[in-house]
Design a protein around this nucleic acid. Structure first.
Length: 424
RNA sequence: GGAGAAAUGGCAGAGUGGUCGAAUGCGGCAGUCUUGAAAACUGUUGAGGGUCACACCUCCGGGGGUUCGAAUCCCUCUUUCUCCGCCA
């Protein structure tokens, strides 16, 4: 969530940023925010005066009682009735204004970084890097859902039986390969300095709001009504919320965490061929990296995260590219996002496997995640996160790109985790 | 799930209706002393709103109530601890 003083001071920049995101009524939205904030100040000013007066009288009454001047005190008491009424009225009004203001601010996404280019959809994203050889496969190469069936690695129908579509069952070497990937990713992250955490898979509303997942992605998350908890759509939510309501020291930076969790997404209305197999699921596994950074360091950190993920894909010998998301495709809370996509030869298409973002202070403002700066003032920290990596599509990419007539080869770096080097 | 106790500033811990935003200790910061450090001593040290700056307002787990006045009383929720029960 943006800070109102920021909006006031950088109105033009905010408007430009929102336009870059194709928000058409930005002007109205912003002027409403500023107007409401003015109303807020005015109302609070009035309320404060009333409260000050009422506090003064209360003190006087207290003194009179102590001096035994009961009669005078009782006289003074009568004056407070109107003040109380007024205070109640203005306080109610203030609450209304504040609620309206908050609701408005919840609707405003983050302001894109300078480097973000205009665009309407994923087609306008800018490819900034590409690496890895695209393997030449034999004529009878199969997509991963066929391979999964052929080698009995994943059973989609069984998942439908016990839960529903989008909840696959991994079996045998399929399950082992997935577990190998999780261990490998975690180990790589730990090696790079990230501390592993295991976090709850259900979060409360405050956590959802903290990362900007709520109310923006309400419909995307599974909600458990009975206990008012949400299944996490990504480990970003619980891990980032570890630092909610904190005032850090400058020496605490940087904070690096990694964690493996399943992720749950409702993905309402997505059906059809392009979401076949592992391409889009309701439950999938992901290893996440999260960083809490000093504002001066956050963009360097973002580049560091990109390099780190590059290193993993390089080791896995998978062909991939990096996109810088355009204004229209940027997620709600992000200022700058790089997507990693790996090329699936058998499907002849790019699959998104990681998204690395700098949220600057957008989440920190909601999280009340601050640090004491050199001047001793509390300042919002920057939060970042990235997938390293999302499992299903990496698994799909490995199955598809590593298939040979003899079977599916296991990437070299994974063999110590799988204990086998071929799925045949 | 049942019974009881508790929740106060970075931490520990006083405070049971009237200058309490809150004693005291520890920690942090600044200074004196020292070649430097430690110790000792002195001062300082919560957050948010508001203001050019003051003033002023709000916050003692969350929400609501009683009262002229609430950290203190009442209701409610949450969390923690102890005992019992159940249990991977």
């Amino acid at each position: 969530m943006l800070q109102v003083p920021f909006i006031r001071q950088h109105k033009e920049r905010v408007l430009k940023g929102l336009q870059l995101r194709n928000i058409n009524d930005a002007e109205t939205l912003i002027s409403q925010v500023l107007q409401l904030d003015e109303d807020r100040k005015k109302t609070q000013g009035t309320l404060d005066e009333i409260l000050a007066e009422s506090n003064k009288i209360s003190k006087e009454i207290g003194q009179l009682f102590q001096q035994g001047e009961t009669q005078k005190a009782n006289l003074l008491k009568e004056k407070t009735g109107k003040l109380k009424e007024d205070a109640k009225r203005y306080s109610d009004q203030l609450n209304e204004i504040q609620e309206a203001l908050t609701n408005l601010l919840y609707q405003i996404p983050n302001i894109p970084n300078k480097s973000v280019t205009p665009g309407n959809s994923d087609e306008d994203n800018v490819e900034i890097f590409r690496e890895g050889d695209i393997p030449v496969l034999s004529k009878n190469a199969l997509p991963h859902w066929e391979l999964a069936k052929k080698y009995d690695l994943i059973d989609f129908e069984l998942g439908v039986k016990i839960t529903g579509a989008g909840f696959p069952v991994y079996k045998g070497k399929g399950a082992k390969l997935q577990r190998a990937l999780i261990s490998y990713f975690l180990d790589k992250n730990i090696e790079a300095g990230y501390e592993e955490v295991q976090v709850p898979h259900l979060v409360n509303e405050a956590s959802g709001i903290g990362t900007g997942s709520l109310p923006d992605k309400e419909g995307q998350m599974y909600h458990i009504g009975k206990d008012d908890l949400y299944l996490i759509p990504t480990a970003e939510v619980p891990i980032t919320n570890l630092y909610r309501d904190m005032v850090l020291k400058e020496s605490d930076f940087p904070i690096l965490n990694t964690g493996y969790t399943p992720c749950f997404r409702r993905e309402a209305g997505s059906y059809g061929a392009h979401v076949r197999g592992l391409n889009r699921l309701h439950q999938f596994d992901k290893v996440e990296i999260v960083r809490i950074e000093h504002p001066d360091q956050s963009y360097a950190a973002l580049e560091g995260m990109v390099d780190h993920i590059k290193g993993i894909l390089r080791e896995l010998k998978l062909p991939y590219r990096i996109l810088r998301l355009c204004g229209g495709d940027l997620t709600f809370a992000s200022a700058l996002t790089y997507d990693f996509e790996l090329f699936s030869t058998a499907q002849d298409r790019w699959l998104e496997i990681s998204s690395v973002s700098n949220f600057e202070t957008f989440q920190a403002n909601r999280l009340k995640l601050r640090f004491k700066n050199a001047k001793g003032k509390n300042e919002l920290a920057h939060t970042l996160n990235g997938s390293s990596l999302a499992l299903p599509r990496v698994l799909a990419g490995i199955l598809e790109n590593y298939q040979t007539d003899a079977g599916i080869e296991i990437p070299e770096v994974l063999r110590k985790y799988t204990g086998f080097d071929l799925i045949a």
